[in-house]
Write a protein that binds this DNA or RNA. Structure first.
Length: 363
DNA sequence: AATTCGTGGCC
DNA sequence: TGGCCAAGAAT
């Protein structure tokens, strides 16, 4: 905490609050979730706005409020109906967690959204940001609500050069906000910071000449507003070599398996494959060994066919594809099947394996 | 701490 | 056109 005292040295928090809040009173956008402070309505908006743009949320929010006007309506609704109302918004676990949390409020808190950090923070889908947003906006409680906007704005205002991509950095900004938040109007203070980040203090080419708090902004005075915030890029994806086998049975069908129900590409179908262990150069032999170990299948591996690269956020698969034949009858299980082309068309394969499929069935 | 989870808009 | 996101949370 001592470190932050240096950051706030000479910063006039009170004038900053006034300028920010006055601006928000004047310039705030007319948004459907700003008609009142109903905690339920605020809650829904905050969940929908997670990682989602305002313009995308608007129509969903309106529709959602017509279908589920009160907390009780949402709690009593069928889950399918809720998911249907969420269809197209993305991050669907938000909808499931939201309804579970709303039911928790109905059953445990008599239908009243709790107003303490401890209680509200326990609700499913309510993390540090959403907790502070509901408490401040709906209940006028001076809690930080630190999202990407707030970190960008405050890193410029106070010239903070910590990497905002690191999870730990959010804690620093929460501590800073606790020191400078308005206790008279925490709602407009928090919303003002986010609105400023959305309209003026935008990521690229911020409109500093229109900014209501530029006289408080250290980055502006130092001319480094475009250098902030510091946000490290995701590190270069690691190249992961993989050997995959397109094995056919004597009657022309294909051997495929289903991925585990958790983790990367959960439940998707694919051609049998294995990550190449470091130092192993004999791909053919490793694939044969994998088929024996994993599926107890003796296979004959033919010649190397093609190479495919497929990118994810943090890794790139470098797939070496071999074609081959199975030398015995395949015992099918839930996760290992022999399929014709027609049967495969009806299953879900990951993109990478669709590429393999197309390449190997073209001829 | 690192991964995963969706979608549409932007330059 | 393809990266880069945008009012994060769960695991």
């Amino acid at each position: 905490m001592k470190v932050y005292l240096d950051i706030l040295q000479g910063f006039n928090a009170q004038e900053f609050q006034q300028d920010l809040i006055s601006w928000f009173e004047q310039e705030q956008r007319d948004l459907p979730w700003r008609v009142n402070k109903d905690p339920y309505r605020v809650w829904i908006s905050e969940i929908m706005l997670q990682q989602t743009r305002v313009e995308a949320v608007k129509p969903y929010y309106k529709n959602f409020m017509e279908k589920f006007p009160t907390l009780t309506d949402l709690a009593d609704a069928a889950e399918d109906e809720v998911l249907k109302a969420w269809e197209g918004l993305g991050y669907y676990s938000r909808a499931r967690n939201l309804q579970a949390a709303v039911r928790e409020v109905r059953d445990t808190y008599g239908g009243i959204v709790p107003n303490t950090p401890e209680e509200i923070g326990k609700l499913k889908g309510v993390g540090p940001y959403t907790k502070g947003a509901i408490l401040s906006i709906a209940y006028d409680i001076p809690e930080p609500a630190v999202d990407g906007n707030v970190m960008r704005v405050m890193s410029r205002i106070l010239s903070i050069w910590e990497d905002i991509a690191k999870p730990k950095t959010r804690q620093l900004f929460e501590d800073v906000i606790r020191q400078v938040i308005s206790h008279d109007n925490p709602s407009y203070f928090n919303q003002g910071l986010m609105e400023l980040g959305a309209l003026i203090c935008i990521p690229k080419n911020p409109s500093c000449l229109l900014c209501p708090v530029r006289q408080h902004c250290r980055a502006f005075h130092e001319g480094v507003q475009k250098e902030l915030p510091v946000k490290s890029k995701a590190k270069e994806p690691k190249l992961v070599p993989i050997v995959a086998g397109v094995f056919r049975t004597p009657n022309g069908k294909y051997v495929v398996n289903k991925r585990p129900s958790t983790g990367l590409l959960a439940n998707m179908w694919e051609f049998p494959n294995v990550e190449v262990k470091e130092g192993i150069t004999n791909h053919k032999q490793q694939l044969m060994y994998h088929m024996k170990e994993q599926f107890d299948l003796h296979v004959e591996v033919g010649e190397y066919t093609l190479n495919i690269q497929h990118g994810f956020t943090h890794r790139t698969w470098d797939i070496f594809v071999f074609e081959g034949m199975v030398q015995q009858e395949v015992i099918e299980t839930e996760t290992l099947k022999v399929m014709s082309r027609e049967e495969m068309e009806e299953r879900t394969f990951s993109r990478s394996h669709q590429k393999i499929y197309e390449a190997c069935t073209k001829k």
